[in-house]
Amino acid sequence: MSRLELFKSNGLMLRNASNILKYNEISKNFGLVLTQKQALMLAYVRADELRYHGRLEFGEGIFGKLIESFCDSPYITQQSYFETLCALTEIFYYYKNETEEYLSDAELIDCMKRYFNGSCKGSTELLSTREMDELARNLKR
């Protein structure tokens, strides 16, 4: 196991899933709750996205910030909550690299939230292929 792979063990996934479930305390006020299975799947989604995009997470992770930012969105329902979080996770890590880390985590999530609730009207596909793409291109200029 390489030095950096010690960060991606299964024990870590379970701990991450527990941490994600803590945010149900906030999101339940908006009718949004993740199950244990969904939290574990999200932990794996995050690990996969980190590996795919060549990133290493050392802090609490972005789920807290994502959930706090998006749980009050008028476009997210209990039925779409898990899938939307998965999509937002992919979008976050992709554009974290695409924006060349120019934006902090909080700034990037803030942009995503504004576009998601605004011009994208809850579409993660539009968020990814249109608004965030344009943002990344503008930042690179």
Partner: peptide
């Protein structure tokens, strides 16, 4: 990593992590 980048980010590129290591 937390000290160097933690104010703005909870993750870094593997390249940065490798350089730090």
């Amino acid at each position: 990593l937390r000290r160097a980048y933690g104010d703005t980010s909870d993750s870094v590129s593997e390249e940065r992590a490798k350089s730090m290591m």
